[in-house]
Nucleic acid binder design. Structure first.
Length: 861
RNA sequence: GCGGGCGUGGCGAAAUUGGUAGACGCAACGGACUUAAAAUCCGUAGGGCCGAGAGGCUCGUGCCGGUUCGACCCCGGCCGCCCGCACCA
């Protein structure tokens, strides 16, 4: 009996799968479809075990569904545009395209080595001209549809990457890639009208019952729907030019209108800018406001700043009441109307501002236990429920009815209307980068901005871009942008901005369904969409996942897809972490160089070669900078990829982080050998089919087998891969307890049934091992296309149950009872039990609770 | 500040969702095999107390309380950690 040899078996079976082409998804099939997708990787150059875990999960589901009779689509591709390629190009003077495709080749090899059941015939990279050309066609269609527009506006500018960022890409006031504090700049920008779908995207979340609650909540908060009142405040005296109809203001608290104390407009508000042009003091104040950062800490500590413009507006309910208009640094231009009315008594920010500048504070909502005669707000605004007072027609109303009353009054007066406002803003999609999808338009002095005709697509990126200097390499290419206008044939310039890479990933799943179609989304897309199960990281909760939802709706309106939601099931997997090691000098040390020893229960780490002691640091997400990255290739040589796959799926539930340890991989490796030993060591293995369970030992094993099938099935469906792996360990133990040596025909038959089931169940996890086992069973086909084992429900239950017996909730013994025994039968058995009777001496039974087939509790005193 | 999640042995965790808490794995310890080691196999193991022993008693799922015959699970209140959003009117 030899040890299992993955070096030999794994390449052999991968070749067999490729030869039989077993993972090709059939566009025409009688079987129900199942589209399994993991977020496609950025081709950084190397696969690490975090990737391996992500794809192993998807592969378990894909292989399981295939065995359950589904026509499975499980594709793979590359999210291939992006900055790392430009950085590599800058550092090494090579072409970003060459760098990217080299990485793709390397990573494809590593992924294939993992034995993933992927239909490689559908592979593409987003930097393939065939892909981005179709994306350009999509861009033009959405532009024509009015879903893409150009406007000058304030944008987030990353000063390190030297490009614009979408709001979703600004984390904590910093660029999501560079980490540099983001600046506000006024630029002409291309936007996607995601706000047109704000309500649809919000409502759609309710249908996504196979999405994590957390992600739905994050998107809900990001969309940020609020209901309130949009109204115009008329100016006292002469209104500034253009504001004759009044100053538009949005509020969610119209019930507090009688508590109004001041108006405040954002420093970027057009009125503020106009005033600044005429008054240097205002201009200086606005400049001051811009200085403050936007990070959390800076906002927290930022002082409220205001400047009284001298303008006055009139209260809508009292024409004699004039209210000052201030410019205030805490008012945001891009939410609501960029102007607010301040009610200090019931809003903390307004209160802070009012206290600082000595503005009136008038309470208009009385807390339930408050006294109208004495209630006053000091330094804490009252934002709770209560009855409105000091408010004329609203007096005595609760907050909600008061809001309705105020909106009604304003609407009747024609001064405004009830309104819904979203926090979501349009998606700025242009990037000032050379390595991305060129926006397919030209700028013509005579015709303006003109679409490149579809038959001239793709607008290809040039070769020979210069990335040695910061900024947009495409824009400074010597000849690329010079072209002629498609309309007037006069000289024109190409747009040099490229599309945000999140545009690339917002529709790739639809392209996989028909990857070679001559149009962006081919006819087969209708058959495959939506993705039935999507797996990826939580970090995309409001980036990629929101953009893809938006794009799907836009494509549906364009008639290209049938579905409104791209991903009917979503699973967000945890990270793979690893201990970190540092020299005394502080340098990080690669885990491969470290040897761990345990002395007197204390773990020590030394560098294997030199014996130098290193400090064991925190367990952290694998990252290049901390050098704690483990590559699957490192362990594939020693243990094979099946061991790696099994390990990353064992121990921790898949949505939680898992710590990579060598000991853990060895545990998986032991399992593989124990399983293999049961196959390899059984000489009778090909003897015949499962016979009748004609003896007790055989029946025991059969029951174990059928229960295991049921359990593993449930574990995979419920994304509890770790529980399934535990079951494999137990299965190996059960087989060891029923060895083939010296066994009778019934046990041998039961073993044969068990081994067949085990091979098929472990196949999604350790597919190479499973093939080897399958062959050993004498099967001629591939296990990759074998059906899932079917359990017999009768064999998942025992004839006899052991019921714990509690007295007053404490376990005091147990009885054996036939399965399904009635309460009366069980009670009789319990009362007839000598041990229980002894325990009950001197006590009177008050009540007997029998839970069928589970437990008995006697209440006695 | 707002929203959400989590808290179980030395460690990763499990518990069919109210019914024997700690399956399975890792690390540890004891034994077998071996000249020896590795590998492999068998076994032990939540804490405390009692007992020579078989075994028994008792406490135990962050803390306090509640509901229930029965609570890791449901309810209320704390504590701690993690994540997301945030001057959003």
């Amino acid at each position: 009996m030899a040890r299992y040899n993955p070096k030999e078996t794994e390449p052999k079976w991968r070749a067999a799968w490729a030869e039989a082409d077993v993972f090709r998804a059939a566009d025409a099939s009688d079987k129900p479809k199942f589209y399994m997708l993991e977020m496609f990787p950025y081709p950084s150059g190397k696969i690490h075990v975090g990737h391996a875990r992500n794809y192993a999960m998807g592969d378990v589901v894909a292989r399981f569904k295939r065995a359950r009779g589904f026509n499975v689509l499980h594709p793979m591709g590359w999210d291939a545009f992006g900055l790392p390629a430009e950085n590599a190009a800058a550092e090494r003077g090579i072409d970003p395209s060459a760098w990217t495709y080299d990485n793709i080749d390397a990573m494809r090899g590593e992924l294939q080595r993992l034995g993933l059941s992927i239909d490689w015939s559908r592979e593409f990279a987003t930097c393939d001209p065939e892909y981005y050309g179709q994306q350009q066609a999509l861009f033009l269609r959405l532009w024509k549809r009015g879903l893409i527009y150009r406007k000058e506006g304030l944008v987030n500018w990353d000063p390190v990457d030297m490009t614009v960022l979408a709001n979703e890409q600004v984390i904590d006031g910093r660029g999501w890639r560079s980490g540099a504090p983001v600046e506000r700049r006024k630029l002409n920008q291309w936007f996607m009208r995601i706000t047109q779908y704000a309500d649809a995207l919000l409502e759609g979340l309710k249908t996504l019952d196979r999405w994590p609650e957390k992600v739905r909540l994050m998107q809900e908060n990001w969309i940020g729907k609020s209901r309130g009142l949009r109204m115009n405040w008329l100016f006292a005296g002469v209104a500034p030019e253009g504001l004759e109809a009044g100053l538009p203001v949005y509020t969610t608290r119209p019930d507090t209108l009688y508590g109004a104390s001041f108006m405040a407009i954002a420093p970027e508000h057009p009125l503020a800018e106009r005033l600044a042009a005429a008054d240097p003091k205002i201009a200086a104040f606005i400049a001051d406001c811009r200085k403050g950062g936007t990070s959390e800490a800076e906002i927290e500590s930022a002082e409220k700043l205001g400047f009284d413009t001298g303008l006055r507006v009139v209260h809508p309910f009292d024409p004699t009441w004039e209210i000052p208009v201030w410019i205030a640094n805490f008012v945001l231009m891009d939410y609501g109307t960029g102007a607010i009315f301040g009610c200090p008594a019931h809003d903390q920010r307004d209160l802070d501002f009012a206290r600082k500048y000595g503005l009136p504070v008038k309470a208009v909502v009385l807390p339930p236990d408050g006294d109208a005669a004495t209630f006053a707000v000091a330094n804490e605004a009252y934002v709770g429920p209560g009855r409105v007072f000091n408010s004329d027609f609203m007096d005595g109303l609760e907050v909600e009815p008061a809001k309705a009353a105020a909106i009604g009054r304003i609407e009747a007066a024609g001064q405004g209307e009830g309104a819904t406002v979203y926090r979501l803003r349009d998606w700025g999609v242009a990037r000032q980068r050379g390595w991305g999808t060129p926006i397919p338009v030209v700028h013509c002095a005579a015709c303006g901005i003109v679409a490149v005709p579809e038959d001239q697509l793709p607008v290809r990126l040039p070769t020979g871009m210069d990335f040695s200097k910061p900024g947009n390499a495409l824009a400074r290419h010597p000849t690329w942008k010079q072209t002629t206008c498609p309309t007037c044939a006069g000289p024109a310039e190409r747009e040099t901005d490229t599309l945000d890479t999140f545009v690339d990933s917002s529709w790739y799943f639809a392209r996989f369904a028909d990857p070679h179609a001559a149009q962006p989304i081919g006819p087969a897309a209708k058959q495959w969409l939506p993705v039935d199960q999507y797996i990826g990281g939580i970090e995309h909760a409001v980036l990629h996942l929101l953009y893809a939802r938006f794009m799907t709706r836009a494509l549906k309106d364009e008639g290209l897809v049938d579905v409104e939601e791209p991903f009917s099931g979503l699973f967000t997997q945890g990270m793979v972490t690893h201990e970190t090691y540092r020299r005394q000098s502080g340098d990080w040390v690669d885990p491969r160089e470290v040897e761990i020893t345990t002395e007197a229960g204390l773990r020590r780490a030394v560098i294997a070669e030199t014996g130098e002691q290193v400090v064991i640091g925190d367990v952290e997400k694998m990252s290049k900078s901390k050098r704690n990255v483990v590559a699957p290739a490192d362990i594939a040589d020693a243990y094979g990829v099946d061991a790696a796959r099994l390990f990353v799926l064992s121990d921790s539930p898949p949505d939680r982080d898992v710590q990579w340890t060598n000991a853990g991989v060895e545990g998986a490796w032991r399992l593989i050998n124990r399983v293999w030993a049961e196959f390899d060591g059984d000489e009778s293995i090909t003897a015949g089919d499962a016979g009748p369970a004609d003896d007790a030992a055989a029946l025991e094993l059969r029951r174990f087998t059928h229960r295991a099938i049921k359990a593993v099935e449930g574990a995979i469906e419920g994304f509890r891969f770790n529980s399934a792996v535990a079951r494999f360990h137990e299965f190996a133990g059960a087989l060891r307890a029923h060895p083939a040596d010296g066994a009778g025909p019934a046990v041998l038959a039961a073993r044969r049934e068990a081994l067949s089931a085990l091979a098929r169940m472990i196949s999604p996890y350790a597919p190479h091992l499973a093939e080897e086992c399958w062959q050993r069973l004498g099967e001629t086909g591939l296990i990759a296309s074998a059906p899932w084992p079917v359990f017999d429900p009768a064999l998942t239950e025992d004839d006899e149950k052991i019921l714990p017996v509690q007295i007053n909730g404490k376990r005091r013994g147990e009885i054996r009872a036939p399965a399904g025994a009635s309460e009366a039968e069980v009670e009789k058995l319990v009362l007839g039990d000598a041990e229980i009777a002894r325990r009950l001496e001197g006590l009177t039974i008050r009540k007997v609770i029998v839970v069928k087939d589970r437990i008995v509790n006697l209440v006695a005193g």
